[in-house]
Design a protein around this nucleic acid. Structure first.
Length: 826
RNA sequence: GCCCAGGUGGCGGAAUUGGUAGACGCGCUAGCUUCAGGUGCUAGUGAUCGAAAGGUCGUGGAGGUUCAAGUCCUCUCCUGGGCACCA
């Protein structure tokens, strides 16, 4: 036992606990097949140079879960690392004339120290920095594997080009259509780039969302919408008089095949090959296409933009009716979705309707409302609901599903159409024309084409000792980097100077933590011990891209035989933003709060506790300095209580005979254990867990104040132990020292989570609420075994009820056992 | 436009299965300790009427279901987020 000073000095407490953890290497874990594992992971930070409150919140949540699970007896892995590639390092390099590598590694060292100050239970032996060749070499290797499997390909794609700086800009470097440094108008340029075939996994990524029951519904919905699966029919309209076979068949996709006979014109995108060809001989059309090209406006405006188009003069033949309809080039048709052409049914699609009105095209009704009162007035707007077919010959009377099948069959028989599925999801472009990223392991040879770098030549090292000035990546200016011999034919070739999208690194880091010292392979058997991640914690801003890419990557790893699970993370907690004065903390708003001075003033435990207490983890958190003060007060008060308490061996209090006051405190103690356990385990409601512990401490203070004899001290000991253990995941340093003070040799972090003593929850009496007509009128303390009849009798006899009886007679009495009696009077 | 959250005291937020609305913390008020204090302790603190006992109102708004609604249903307003001409 160690006695403690009654004045709480967080700096000393935290130093003592951290020293112990360090000396005992307390957070290092190894695989142990005999124990249940728990992998708790917080999204790793970008090493920007300093921790902000969002990090503190994220990691305090993760650490609380980690330590709780450890106290449940599980073998818990909680690693930490650095999402170290990225644009800010390049910007800093330009500003400070420091190579990005040096800047990044310096930041990592500094931020690691900050994290250690906060006392998080990380197994630092597994630390990863994605900019390290030991890490990205496997990403390069994996890419070459995907290349061999045909899961990567190269195609032209548009980038933002700054004509003054002569460089490609990331989207965030384009401000109001101009380069952020040069101020020059940004141009769109097409250059060859690498893509990962995520669309090949679209169906599985969508289907498996259903199995992710531990993910917030919101995230699943967002991913589902992002994938955007729609079932429909792909069908062909022939172009009348067109000789060129590649242009003769105009293919379109529709989710409403039932409206097929309502087609009165066709609409194609400005970039559609047919449009481009027609423009060659049609100056008005050419001008229109060029003008639309200029309009690379914000996507939000697109939706409300006026619908415009030009007649190509071409005619398409309806595959069923044989009718010839005009083909328009229209600004509302996207080249990137479906085939870049649509069949227009103005009667039953609002966009088509508006366009038809504007250009005086016929509007034909082929669907009529079922008898459900739906309104249909094609003079006012399109009728877009599903209904019954009319004006469609032999298809008349069919409903949507019948028509879908019938049209599909008819068209298939003619070789003019088939059922298809379309996705909103696009393949993942992974090329970045940047320096500070993992080099794409491809060599371009004039004779052999794109050749992956052989495994023996990996990694392709990113040169770190470089001069970094403006004007884009230095790699294309470094012949020593890009001048290589082709691995296949040996002739002079050129290495790719593009680097990977940094989402590539963050898509598989969770797996590499399991075996980051493995030099022979990307992953080994240890990954299957730890995976999938049992609890992942991070910002909602990653709901789509990072989490979708990680799920995709996991399936790629699985199909390469590297992991045996289908999904990377079973449970996901998306923590809310940290706000100050109602708006998000950000440098530009100037409302950031630096965690470090607070840690110095109050200690890490107070700061951690406040971030968990101020709101539920998935809600936003409003920062309040006086709230932090409140947490500090609580810890000081509890500390005093502990110091004033003389530890006793915590035998088995249940063998004792307790007086009423002792029973009452024990009831509160065990009720609190019950609630807090549920809050931690099931709800992740740390805010209410902490509040419940505070309630217990308040009651404990009152009890202890009354003076304590030997048997009282036993009950106090029991309560203080419970409090110390329940707070251990939140304020681990505090609990570490408190636990020793309470007479334990074993470290608090290895202690077991407290267990509810059911017998302490047994009460002799219970509080019953008395209502008259649903309004609270009184309360009564009744015997635990009081039956329904007795409760009724007692309630009616209550003074507060008697007063209302003069106003009417009793109609009904509702008894909710253990809760209330409601007397209905009228 | 579509989809998803959310709206509760002066503030952050509780109320988990329809059953005592406002736990816990902040702030505020009064008092005590006597502290140089910004410390500590005690009591009070939704609004309103009342000396009190007690009553009335009260969870964005309007209806409804129910013995009973912050919680369920219908309509509506506001805030935040996501998607956005997806055929």
């Amino acid at each position: 036992m160690s006695s403690i000073d009654s004045y709480y000095k967080p700096q000393e407490v935290e130093a003592q606990a951290q020293k112990y953890w360090e000396e005992h290497d307390s957070f290092r874990v190894t695989e142990d097949p005999d124990r249940e594992k728990f992998y708790c992971l917080s999204m790793f930070p970008y090493p920007s140079g300093h921790l902000h409150m969002g990090h503190v919140r994220n990691y305090s949540i993760g650490d609380a879960i980690t330590r709780f699970q450890r106290m449940q007896g599980k073998n818990v892995l909680q690693p930490m690392g650095w999402d170290a590639f990225g644009l800010p390092a390049e910007n800093a390099a330009m500003q400070n004339k420091v190579p990005p590598a040096q800047w990044t590694y310096g930041n990592i060292d500094y931020m690691r120290q900050q994290l250690q100050k906060l006392g998080y239970a990380y197994d630092w032996s597994r630390e990863i920095a994605t900019c390290h060749p030991d890490y990205y070499r496997w990403e390069q290797w994996f890419f070459t594997r995907l290349f061999d499997k045909g899961l990567v390909y190269k195609k032209e794609a548009e980038v933002n080009w700054d004509p003054v700086d002569q460089t490609v800009l990331a989207n965030e470097q384009v401000v109001d259509g101009r380069g952020w440094r040069s101020g020059a108008l940004v141009e769109r340029r097409s250059i060859p780039q690498w893509f990962l075939r995520i669309t090949a996994y679209a169906d599985e990524l969508l289907k498996d969302l259903e199995s992710l029951e531990g993910w917030p519904e919101k995230v699943r919905t967002m991913q589902s919408n992002w994938i955007g699966r729609s079932e429909g029919l792909e069908l062909v309209f022939l172009i009348a008089g067109e000789k060129d076979d590649s242009l003769r068949r105009l293919s379109v996709f529709t989710t409403r095949p039932d409206t097929l006979l309502g087609v009165t014109y066709m609409a194609i995108a400005t970039q559609h090959p047919l449009a481009l060809k027609a423009a060659e001989t049609n100056p008005a059309l050419k001008a229109f296409i060029e003008e639309q090209q200029q309009h690379k406006v914000a996507e939000a405006e697109l939706a409300t933009m006026e619908k415009l188009g030009v007649d190509t003069g071409l005619k398409a033949t309806h595959p069923l009716s044989g009718e010839e309809v005009p083909i328009y080039v229209a600004n509302f048709v996207l080249m990137s979705y479906g085939s870049g052409a649509v069949m227009a049914v103005p009667g039953h699609d609002q966009r088509d309707w508006e366009f038809a009105r504007k250009y005086d095209l016929p509007i034909r009704q082929v669907i009529e409302p079922r008898d459900d009162g739906a309104q249909c007035d094609l003079d006012k707007e399109a009728f877009v609901d599903k209904g019954r077919l009319v004006n469609s010959g032999k298809f008349d009377g069919m409903d949507f599903q019948q028509a879908f099948e019938a049209f599909a069959e008819t068209l298939a028989a003619k070789g003019m159409g088939s059922k298809t599925v379309n996705y909103r999801l696009r393949d993942w472009g992974v090329s970045r024309q940047r320096y500070w990223g993992a080099p794409i392991p491809i060599i371009n040879c004039d004779h052999c084409g794109s050749v992956p770098v052989p495994e023996a030549d990996l990694p392709v090292l990113l040169p770190e000792d470089i001069e970094f000035s403006g004007g884009g990546s230095p790699l294309p200016k470094m012949p020593e980097f890009y001048e290589v011999a082709c691995p296949q034919c040996g002739q002079a070739a050129r290495r790719e100077t593009d680097t990977f999208d940094t989402f590539m690194e963050s898509s598989w880091y969770y797996a590499r933590y399991a075996c980051r010292d493995q030099t022979e392979s990307m992953l080994d058997a240890r990954a299957n011990y730890w995976l999938p991640v049992d609890q992942y914690i991070g910002g909602i801003e990653h709901a789509i891209l990072h989490l979708l890419y990680s799920r995709f990557y996991h399936k790629l790893l699985r199909d390469e035989g590297l992991v045996d699970s289908d999904e990377p993370m079973t449970n996901l907690l998306t923590q809310g933003m940290v706000l100050k004065d109602g708006s998000k903390m950000s440098k530009s708003r100037g409302n950031t709060v630096d965690p470090l001075p607070l840690i110095e003033q109050y200690g890490a435990d107070t700061v951690r506790m406040f971030t968990l207490f101020a709101s539920a983890p998935d809600q936003s958190l409003d920062w309040s300095d006086s709230g932090v003060e409140g947490m500090y007060r609580f810890l000081k008060r509890l500390w005093k209580l502990l110091a004033d308490h003389e530890a006793v061996a915590s035998g088995s209090p249940s063998a004792q005979e307790f007086n009423a006051a002792q029973k009452k405190l024990r009831l509160k103690t065990h009720q609190t254990i019950d609630k807090v356990t549920d809050d931690f385990q099931r709800r992740h409601a740390f805010n209410t867990a902490i509040a419940a512990v505070m309630e217990l401490v308040n009651e404990l203070s009152d009890f202890a104040r009354a003076g304590a004899d030997a048997s009282d001290r036993l009950v106090i000991q029991e309560a203080l132990e419970a409090v110390t253990l329940m707070l251990a995941p939140v304020v681990p340093h505090f609990s570490h020292v408190a636990w020793l003070h309470l007479g334990h040799d074993q470290a608090c972090l290895d202690a077991s989570w407290p267990v509810v003593d059911r017998s302490a929850l047994q009460q002799d009496s219970m509080l019953i609420v008395i209502q008259v007509n649903g309004k609270l009128r009184g309360k009564m303390e009744v015997d635990r075994d009081a039956g329904r009849d007795e409760l009724e009798k007692l309630a009616v006899a209550d003074d507060s009820v008697q007063r209302f009886l003069s106003e009417g007679s009793i109609r009904k009495i509702i008894v909710v056992p253990g809760r209330l009696v409601n007397i209905v009077i009228s």
